[in-house]
Design a protein around this nucleic acid. Structure first.
Length: 346
DNA sequence: TCTGGGGTCCTAGGACCC
DNA sequence: TCTGGGGTCCTAGGACCC
């Protein structure tokens, strides 16, 4: 009778590229870059992903397609196709749900699993085999005592491997690594930590929580030390996530300077966002307008609505009023609308 | 490398009220 | 008349993640 609980993190390897290669098997082994409409000459479009063959030429996700084309002229460029990824993701998640585990989905290509077993490695191998057989997709699986450990373990397990990272081997695995190896500490915080003398996970784990709180706030500061100690959330939540809000934004191929043009785009975005809310059965409580000007300066302005609404005219009017509170004296490269939803009680 | 789109959570300052 | 302290709401921005 198994009594030990584990958190597993399943991460599909090169998910978007893998789905595209299933549809285009003739491209296997070639450098492939996915992003935008698939036109690498389009400015202000970035790669969603790049295959290993493209990465060998220095191409990576987030890189402008035009740069990718320069670095790898032989690459095949494919358009991004979110509905196809959504469908592939659902097939994978359906396989996971057939196992005696709790499943918490985290986006298209990730899931946390809660399992009770004495042999998590065998469970992980069985999961990989089932996903591979049923969807022809590879995944890596991390095994941990909590989500943080499992998440880092799955990254260490790539490609297509299984890795265990628990409290028992946390220190030997993580202590020497830089602080941004932790899930939740990025480049900015890592740099600020380094300025305080905390370069490694071990150093951060030994830090004074009060000092961290002074520099990073009462919640974040002590939390960074917790991460360094290998702690983290250990509850797998199977109930569907309820979105806090929703947004749509557009980056223009060329800057816009005419307010009427901006108002037209903003009106369309506000209409979309409101329709999305209606489709999701949600009400809007707050409207926010984002404007990004050259040189890449991003500002947001927001208003709380007097009452929750699903009226596109009201949301649009509010967005246009907010637009007038923005400084529009510089050319605009992006405009966006974000809304917050009322949260259901309980 | 001239830098997407869609999310979540936290912080800090000011307004306002008691 | 001046000032205190605390609580809550609103807004703008920052950081992180996929």
């Amino acid at each position: 009778m198994a009594t030990r609980n584990w958190i597993l993190h399943l991460d599909l390897d090169q998910f978007i590229a893998a789905v595209e290669l299933l549809r285009h098997p003739e491209l296997r082994g070639r450098p492939v870059v996915v992003g935008g409409t698939g036109d690498p000459t389009q400015p202000r479009t970035v790669a969603a992903t790049a295959t290993y063959e493209a990465r060998e030429h220095g191409v990576h996700s987030g890189m402008p397609l035009r740069t990718a084309l320069r670095r790898c002229p032989d690459a095949v460029f494919l358009p991004s196709d979110p509905p196809a990824y959504e469908a592939a993701s659902e097939r994978v998640m359906a396989v996971l749900r057939e196992f005696p585990v709790l499943v918490e989905i985290w986006g298209w290509d990730e899931a946390f699993l809660g399992a009770t077993t004495d042999d998590p490695e065998t469970l992980a191998a069985d999961l990989q085999h089932a996903v591979r057989t049923r969807t022809r997709l590879d995944c890596s699986i991390g095994i941990g005592d909590n989500k943080h450990q499992a998440k880092l373990a799955s990254a260490l397990a790539k490609p297509a491997g299984v890795r265990r990272l628990t409290t028992a081997n946390w220190a030997e695995t993580m202590n020497h690594r830089p602080t941004d190896a932790l899930w939740g500490i990025g480049a900015r915080i890592s740099k600020r930590l380094a300025a305080l003398g905390y370069h490694t996970v071990a150093q951060l784990a030994a830090a004074d929580p009060a000092e961290l709180a002074r520099h990073f706030g009462p919640t974040n500061g002590p939390w960074y030390r917790y991460l360094a100690l290998g702690k983290g959330e250990a509850e797998v939540v199977t109930t569907p996530w309820i979105a806090r809000g929703h947004s749509r934004e557009t980056t223009f191929p060329q800057d816009l300077t005419d307010r009427a043009d901006l108002a037209r785009h903003l009106t369309a975005l506000a209409g979309h966002v409101t329709q999305d809310a209606v489709d999701a059965g949600r009400e809007i409580t707050r409207v926010s307008v984002k404007v990004r000007t050259t040189p890449f300066l991003t500002r947001t302005r927001q208003s709380k609505l007097p009452a929750p609404t699903t009226d596109p005219a009201l949301v649009t009017r509010t967005a246009l009023d907010i637009l007038d509170r923005h400084d529009l004296t510089h050319p605009v490269r992006l405009i966006g609308v974000a809304v917050e939803y009322t949260m259901p009680k309980e």
